[in-house]
Design a protein around this nucleic acid. Structure first.
Lengths: 124, 124
DNA sequence: ACCTATTTGTCCGTATGTATG
DNA sequence: CCATACATACGGACAAATAGG
C-alpha cells in the first residue's frame, strides 16, 4: 500500500502518518493482516526519520489498529465489519450514558481499559 | 511526592516510571490535582533522560491518569469515587456484551476511543 | 546449529517549537 | 521579555526478536 501524507501544519508528523494509515484501514485499502512498510523504509520515502514512523506505529498499536513485532514488522488488525457494527452500537450506547457523568474521554477510556484488562489480560 | 524505581530488568525504564506514579495514585500518596515533578528534574533524580520520563508521562496521559500542559507540568487526575462507580457499572455492562463478540481488548478500546472523540473532541 | 540481515524497542543527546506563568 | 516545561523531531547506538540462508 502507498502511504502519503497530507501536509498539515498544526498536527505533528507522527500523527499525520498515523492518520494516513488509519484512513487506509477505514477505507479498506489496508486489509486485515496486511503488512505495513518497515519504519525505516517508510521514513525514507516520506522524508522523515525512522523514529517518527515508529512513533506513529506505536500509537496505532496502542489504539489496537496494528500489531507490531520485532523482526516481523507491522500488521493491520481489522475487525470484521459486522462485528464492528455490533460493537459500535454497544459502545455508542455506553457513551451516551457516560456523557452525563461529566468525565473526560481519557478518564472513561482508562476505566474501561481496566475493566477489559481484568477479563482478558493478554493477547500474546 | 517522592518517586522511586524498583529496578526490574525485563520491563523498560519508562514503564517502571509510569508504574511508580500509577502506584502513587492508587495508594493515595498522589492526590487529585497534585503536580508531578518536572520531567527534567525527575530524570536527573532517577538518573534517566528527560525523554524517558516524558515517555512515561505521556503513557499516563494516554491512560487518563494525568494531565500534561506545556509550561505547567503534569497534574494528577483522579475521578470522584461516586462518579467512578457509576461509570464502572456502565462500562462493566458494555464489557460483558462485547465479550461474546470475540474482539480483542485493544480493538474494543480503539473503537470506543473513536466514539468518545466524536462526542467530545477536546477538553482544552 | 550458526550466522546474518531485518525490524521493532529502548535510551540517550541535541535542537527547536510552543504554551504557561 | 523571560524562565519553565512539555512536544516534536532528528540522529546515533545498542538490544532483542524474527526470518532466511
Amino acid at each position: 500500500m502507498l502511504i502519503r501524507l497530507i501536509p498539515d501544519p498544526g498536527s505533528p508528523l507522527h500523527e499525520q502518518i498515523a492518520a494516513a494509515v488509519r484512513a487506509g484501514i477505514l477505507d479498506g485499502s489496508l486489509a486485515d493482516g496486511e503488512r505495513l512498510p518497515a519504519a525505516k523504509a517508510l521514513g525514507e520515502s516520506l522524508g522523515v526519520s525512522l523514529h517518527t514512523v515508529l512513533h506513529a506505529y506505536q500509537d496505532l498499536r496502542d489504539q489496537g489498529l496494528i500489531e507490531l513485532r520485532r523482526g516481523r514488522g507491522a500488521v493491520v488488525i481489522a475487525p470484521a465489519p459486522a462485528t464492528r457494527e455490533n460493537a459500535l452500537r454497544i459502545l455508542d450506547d455506553a457513551a451516551s450514558q457516560l456523557a452525563v457523568l461529566g468525565l473526560s474521554a481519557e478518564t472513561i477510556l482508562a476505566l474501561f481499559r481496566q475493566r477489559l484488562d481484568r477479563s482478558s489480560p493478554h493477547d500474546d
